[in-house]
């Protein structure tokens, strides 16, 4: 009857990854080279320390859940890939993988949120509770992406696993696929990508 342990762990890990990326960017501005396991562990511990600071009787990370209720698997994957690239130079998600995720994030957000928030009587969110058309659609998309060698397909598979394991408070597949922050990040990244491309032309 209480908050799943996995959801609590994610509520610490996700903002920790965000802070690690921000700290690494700050370090680069200060002319350091934040690369390697030492930097990763060091900045990770600093980030975790900040998130453990008690605010209103709770660790800061848990206070943040008042706003950021859940982190989608897709956003977590982007953050993990960002940390991996920043500290180890390893590209877990390549440009084309990320772009596919951003497109999904934008399309899902633009179509999904207005409907889920009451524009009309159709509620796509309702199809995330049980195995049905949404699951097949996402599964087929994942397999199509995997066939093309796009790693976004693997991330979608991870979302299925997370839903099955019930790592979030919600039992709705949508909450594993997208969240409002992922939507805004996707919009920003896609806009930036388009602007950069047009400048190159």
């Amino acid at each position: 009857m209480i908050t799943p342990l996995a959801a609590v762990i994610v509520s610490f890990i996700a903002p920790m990854l965000v802070l690690m990326i921000l700290f690494a960017a700050l370090a680069r501005r200060l002319r350091f080279n934040p690369h390697g396991a030492g930097w990763c562990v060091g900045l990770g511990l600093i980030a975790l320390g900040i998130l453990m600071i008690p605010v209103a009787g709770l660790p800061l990370a848990r206070v943040l859940t008042a706003v950021m209720d859940h982190w989608s698997v897709l956003l977590l994957a982007l953050l993990a890939a960002g940390v991996s690239k920043t500290f180890f130079g390893a590209e877990l998600l390549r440009r084309e993988d990320r772009r596919a995720m951003w497109v999904f994030g934008v399309v899902a957000g633009v179509v999904f949120y207005p409907l889920a928030l009451g524009i009309g009587s159709v509620d796509p969110f309702a199809y995330g509770w049980h195995f049905g058309p949404l699951f097949v659609l996402v599964g087929c998309t994942a397999m199509l992406l995997q066939l093309q060698g796009n790693r976004f397909g693997v991330v979608l598979l991870l979302a299925f696993f997370a839903w099955l394991a019930g790592v979030a408070e919600s039992g709705n597949l949508w909450d594993y696929l997208t969240d409002p922050v992922f939507f805004f990040v996707s919009v920003g990244a896609l806009v930036k990508s388009v602007v950069t491309k047009s400048k190159q032309h």
């Binding site: 309702a126 199809y127 509770w129 049980h130 195995f131 049905g132 058309p133 699951f135 097949v136 599964g139 994942a142 397999m143 995997q146 066939l147 060698g149 397909g153 693997v154 979608l156 598979l157 299925f160 696993f161 099955l164």
Partner: peptide, 26 residues
């Protein structure tokens, strides 16, 4: 590798379908 991932995805879908059953209506 691609076909392994695809097979895994299909297997997971089938597993979820068998465990929870197909529901068109929520």
């Amino acid at each position: 590798r691609r076909f392994i991932w695809m097979g895994l995805t299909l297997a997971l879908l089938v597993f979820i379908g068998l465990r929870y059953g197909w529901r068109v209506s929520p």
